[in-house]
Design a binder for these strands. Structure first.
Lengths: 151, 151
DNA sequence: CCTCACTAGTTGAAGTTTCAAGCGTTGAGG
DNA sequence: CCTCAACGCTTGAAACTTCAACTAGTGAGG
């Protein structure tokens, strides 16, 4: 027997589903319009910029951006084509590919960041109390944990 | 001057971004595996099934599924090809297209629902308190409202 | 009545993501 | 040493989404 969602859960679920569809669309469209970047492109550049030497192995970057290696590989090829990242073989192991953020890529990220952060602030955090932010972190963390615990 | 996110906001934001990427991927993959349906396909069938006469105009369905008309049109063509929905011109206005859920489509939805609900329950609600559910609804509602208020 | 801006929907191409298959590398066990 | 399964990554095709352009119908204002 299926345990259906009760009334409260259903309302919460529909809103969460709305957030997933609309928020990611809104972020994509702002970044696309202002910086010719996908939200996922942005995430890649941002993760690289925050790592030591601004460089990461493909697998590590895939993990940090929650993406499949295949998706990442295609996107990195695109970004590489634009000169924003560069692939270099790892000296450590010949099957590892390292991705570097180039100076160009860094500039693109720096130029895109303010608009993106502004959008996130205005769509998500504006008008949210401290408690709301804490609850958001707690609940979102819970969901991510459950997903990662169920492969 | 950009107002950056503070520490708490940043943590909450990274988790929320994780939810958007991972939860929708998880839902898609469960539905794809078990019922050969996209989460968006499922939403279309579900919205139709809950409406009067199991029929809606394209625009109305687009609004309820948070999709562009173009995206919807392509997907409805696919579902129509499988015999799960049918397009009929509206008697009210010749530019309106109505979409009906067919008997076949209804069966597909009924077959897919338990597994989908089970997945949602297990990834989202299992282990969440009443208060958490309320907070989720409140915060998610807040975000959706802000997006809809900023077109 | 017209006109014209707007609405509803479709379409094809371009861009993105997934899927499945494949290639070379590594390392644990025999 | 070998072997072979697992790892890290890439690739091409298929599936999906977006984008821009387009058809056609509607209705408010003149």
């Amino acid at each position: 027997m299926t345990r259906w969602l009760d009334e409260d859960e259903l309302r919460a679920w529909l809103r969460l589903a709305g957030v997933m569809l609309k928020l990611s669309a809104a972020l994509d469209s702002q970044l696309q319009r202002d910086s010719d970047l996908t939200h996922f492109d942005y995430l890649c550049l941002a993760m690289l910029s925050e790592s030591d030497e601004r460089r990461l192995a493909m697998s590590e970057l895939a993990a940090r951006t929650n993406a499949s290696l295949s998706r990442l590989s295609h996107v990195i090829s695109k970004l590489e084509g634009r000169g924003w990242v560069a692939r270099t073989p790892s000296p450590r192991s010949r099957r590892v590919t390292l991705v570097d953020l180039t100076e160009e890529g860094w500039k693109v990220l720096v130029a895109a960041a303010p608009g993106h952060v502004e959008t996130v602030r205005s769509l998500v955090f504006e008008g949210l109390s401290r408690d709301d932010v804490a609850a958001l972190e707690r609940v979102a963390g819970h969901i991510v944990d459950r997903i990662e615990g169920t492969p």
